[in-house]
Simulated scan of single mutants.
Amino acid sequence: MADIITCREKYFMHNSLVCLIQAVRNQYCTIELRNGDAVSGKLSFVDGFMNVSLEDAVFITSDDQQHHFEFFFVQARNIRFITIPQNVEITAAIMEQLEKNRRQFAPRLSEIVGGKQLDKGSVKRRLFAAPNDGDEVTGDH
């Protein structure tokens, strides 16, 4: 996954069905494009906006010509639909992927307290301290 993820992308990852497409990463699927063409291959990457990268792909034109590609990128706006493999339990896959996303993008303690290394007790005191008790409060409140 990319190192830099925007807040907007995180929002889409948690509040749309992008998490289902992310859950079928490393499986073979077919993507039908808006122009009637299709591409099949191993889903290697999906970002929060549903841009998709496939490996070992076969591009199938509307007149059934096939072209093989080692790597194929599809921009989200060109996708009509994605066929999910039948062996995927959709509800379980969504729940599992949402949990992975939450763990991956949860704020780290060092981010909350301005990059300082603190123990958990100190973090709690700083986060929940009243503003006038002499200890500087950091983080978003």
Rank of each mutant, 00 (worst) to 15 (best):
M1D: 04
A2P: 15
A2T: 15
I4C: 08
I4A: 12
I5T: 14
T6Q: 11
C7E: 14
R8N: 13
R8I: 10
E9W: 04
K10D: 02
M13N: 03
H14Y: 07
S16N: 10
L17K: 12
V18H: 10
C19S: 10
L20N: 00
I21E: 05
Q22D: 02
Q22G: 03
A23N: 10
A23M: 07
R25C: 09
N26Q: 14
Q27L: 13
Q27N: 14
Q27A: 08
Y28G: 10
C29G: 15
T30P: 04
E32V: 07
L33Y: 07
R34I: 10
R34Y: 04
R34P: 00
N35S: 07
N35G: 04
D37P: 05
A38G: 09
A38N: 13
V39Q: 14
V39C: 11
G41N: 04
L43G: 06
L43K: 00
L43V: 08
S44M: 09
V46P: 00
V46K: 00
D47V: 06
D47S: 04
F49N: 07
M50L: 06
M50I: 04
M50Q: 11
V52Q: 01
E55F: 05
E55T: 06
A57K: 04
I60H: 15
T61V: 01
T61P: 03
D64C: 06
D64H: 11
H67C: 02
H68C: 04
H68L: 07
F71Y: 14
F72W: 15
F72T: 08
F73P: 04
V74M: 01
Q75I: 15
A76Y: 01
R77Y: 09
I79Y: 11
F81G: 02
I82Q: 02
T83L: 15
P85M: 07
N87T: 14
N87R: 15
V88K: 13
E89W: 10
I90W: 03
I90D: 03
I90G: 02
A92E: 05
A93K: 00
A93I: 01
A93R: 01
A93L: 03
M95K: 14
M95S: 12
E96N: 11
E96C: 06
E96T: 11
Q97V: 01
L98R: 13
L98A: 05
E99I: 00
R102D: 03
R103S: 05
Q104N: 09
P107D: 02
R108T: 14
L109M: 07
S110H: 13
E111G: 05
E111W: 07
I112H: 04
V113E: 01
G114L: 03
G115E: 01
G115L: 11
K116Q: 12
L118K: 15
L118M: 15
K120E: 08
K124E: 10
K124D: 07
R125T: 14
R126V: 07
F128W: 06
A129I: 10
P131I: 11
N132V: 13
N132L: 14
D133I: 11
G134N: 13
D135T: 09
V137G: 09
T138C: 09
G139K: 07
G139Q: 04
D140H: 08
D140C: 05
H141E: 15
